[in-house]
Design a binder for these strands. Structure first.
Length: 551
RNA sequence: UGCCUGAUGGUGUAACGGUAGCACAACUGUUUUUGGUGCAGUUUGUCUAGGUUCGAAUCCUGGUCAGGCAACCA
């Protein structure tokens, strides 16, 4: 822990609490509802909650906020656990709000007995109407004055299944004129005759968020309950419940959720993308989900680094996607194995190469002195990138063209002597001669060239499929843009191409990170097999030449 | 018309009454067998009007702007 780094406002609070002796140690929690897959916004919360505990010597619970059976599934529980683990965090306890249903029910009874809760027979519409508006106080109804005995009997009957969905609700009796809408007799329990993924059909009444979350925190003795800004108005109710029940005083603190350019962070909208098949699945590499990012090739380290860099504050924010890309490039640059892959090939024939073939050696990672080298076969017929040849080169073009010289990476310097075109006028074959004394590592040619090209020996090349991704949306602020967010979907977010790769890739591990030289960072897709290698582009390399060309 | 948050370069985030710093982005230059990486550097900022103070991004008052608050969702 560096003393240089300043504390964010939550760390500030915790260190003060600890210094004041308010707690012996801290306990945080990460409380997802298992109704979808985790996304990068959750990663921010995960890194915060687990990071806080780690930093201050505490622990973190993983708690599933499963109080709405109609939206939640075990599939989501499993994916959430896998994602948190993959990110590199361990919870001390795995908890479920549904484990507290008995206790929560008892709490509700306590409130009824204190005259602080009542059963209301009104419809949802009537209740909404009676709540008034932010500027007009709400009005009560006759149900508000039911006796404690009647409320108790009615609530017990609710639990016993005597009523149907929507017939009755349990509400707290607080203040119908409160300037805080959430204090205007909020709903505590509703009837839902639905199957719960964990409690099955044991219950037909389920607590609302406001009656489950704070109490769950309290039951677990969470010291610092950290959530996002939209829960600020709920805090008064959170505190009210804890106070009236006289239970462990957990405290809620709020920070601004993550927003990022060119993507969305709403579970509802992400679900829509999946259901309407704008993407293939929750773990589609274009999705901002943890599982999508994992499949795309992001490393947990880079995501943690990103979450560290964006900081924690209370103001709304929208983070440049390029910061995430910076983080993943920085990590991958250090660990990725370099390989050569040609995507849009054109044939290069070395006319004066009189050997059949030879094995050259190329470093696996110039950033890693221990990284070693690999064998790369070389022969007189190679594939190079079509974009690396220009019939009439411009001034700053450092690649191949008539009479121009370049180095073939880890091989020889060559000079273009001639080229052939097909009937359509496309360059088909390039003829070049090589300088035997310019061999990499033992170059005595004295020739200096500006450009170095990647290449693949044609007869040794193996076919691979590349999935190259672009941003999912074509506006920066998708959530803030007018109209339907789906109008801004980038129709070209996925490009799949066939390419030629050097043979080493066939024997590489499925989990290895690659940099295809001059192309970008790639990671094998979950569908990849030895017979059909499929790679996903995690992120491109920075491309100064592309920028230059745009000018 | 109410209540609650917040406002520092293009984007984030620090500075806790005492030199507005850091990162990303952008732009130079340099190194380089990846137009990658590395290295050096440049540009750009305290919402506004008053007040307190020797001194204000920071404290006070008014204003402006942005976001949130009424779901039998979390």
């Amino acid at each position: 822990m560096s003393e240089e780094k300043s504390l964010n406002f939550i760390e500030e609070i915790i260190s003060q609490d600890l210094a004041a002796g308010k707690y012996a140690s801290i306990l945080t929690r990460f409380p997802p509802e298992p109704n979808g897959y985790l996304h990068i916004g959750h990663a921010k919360s995960i890194c915060l909650n687990f990071g806080l505990a780690k930093r201050f010597g505490g622990a973190t619970n993983l708690r599933f906020d499963d109080t709405n059976p109609t939206k939640e599934e075990t599939e989501y529980v499993d994916s959430i656990k896998a994602d948190v683990k993959w990110l590199g965090f361990d919870w001390i306890k795995e908890c479920y709000a549904s484990d507290y249903f008995d206790q929560l029910y008892a709490f509700a009874l306590q409130l009824i007995e204190k005259g602080l809760a009542y059963v209301d027979d009104s419809s949802a519409e009537e209740i909404a109407l009676q709540k008034g508006t932010p500027t007009v106080p709400g009005t009560g109804n006759a149900f508000r004055n039911r006796s404690i005995e009647e409320n108790k009997a009615l609530f017990e009957a609710m639990k016993a299944g005597a009523f149907e969905d929507g017939d009755k609700v349990l509400r707290a009796k607080i203040d119908l004129a409160s300037p805080n809408m959430h204090m205007r007799d909020p709903l505590l329990y509703r009837i839902k005759k639905a199957h719960h993924h964990r409690t099955g059909d044991a219950w037909c009444i389920y607590p609302m968020y406001d009656f489950a979350h704070g109490q769950s925190d309290s039951i677990e003795h969470i010291t610092h309950s950290v959530c996002t800004l939209e829960f600020i108005p709920h805090r008064a109710l959170y505190d009210w419940c804890i106070e009236q029940l006289g239970i462990f005083p957990s405290h809620q603190y709020e920070f601004a959720r993550l927003n990022m350019t060119y993507t969305i962070m709403s579970k509802r909208k992400l679900l829509q993308l999946v259901q309407e098949e704008h993407v293939q699945s929750w773990d589609d590499p274009r999705m901002p989900t943890i599982s999508g990012m994992r499949r795309r090739g992001y490393t947990p380290e880079s995501i943690r680094d990103f979450c560290e860099r964006i900081g924690i504050a209370k103001r709304e924010n929208i983070i440049d996607f390029s910061l995430l890309e910076f983080c993943v490039r920085e990590h991958l640059n250090k660990i990725a194995q370099r390989r050569m892959v040609v995507t849009n090939p054109v044939k290069l024939v070395i006319t004066n190469y009189d050997k059949v073939e030879e094995i050259l050696h190329s470093e696996n990672n110039p950033e890693d002195p221990e990284g070693g080298v690999r064998d790369v076969p070389f022969s007189n017929e190679l594939w190079i990138e079509r974009a690396d040849f220009m019939e009439e080169p411009t001034k700053k073009y450092f690649r191949l063209g008539p009479d121009l010289m370049v180095r073939l990476k880890s091989a020889y310097i060559i000079k273009c002597d001639s080229f052939e075109k097909d009937a359509a006028g496309n360059v088909q074959t390039i003829h070049a001669s090589y300088f035997p004394e310019s061999k990499s590592g033992s170059d005595t040619s004295g020739i200096h060239v500006k450009g170095t090209l990647h290449w693949v020996s044609a007869k040794h090349a193996v076919p691979v499929v590349l999935n190259e991704y672009d941003r999912l949306f074509n506006v920066e602020d998708v959530a803030g843009a007018e109209g339907d967010f789906k109008d801004y979907i980038n129709p070209n977010s996925l490009t799949t191409t066939n390419a030629w790769a050097e043979p080493a890739l066939v024997n590489d591990s499925l989990d290895a990170r690659f940099q295809f030289i001059r192309k970008g960072y790639f990671y094998q897709d979950t569908t990849s097999t030895k017979d059909k290698l499929v790679f996903n582009r995690t992120v491109t390399l920075k491309d100064a030449w592309a920028k230059e060309q745009k000018k």
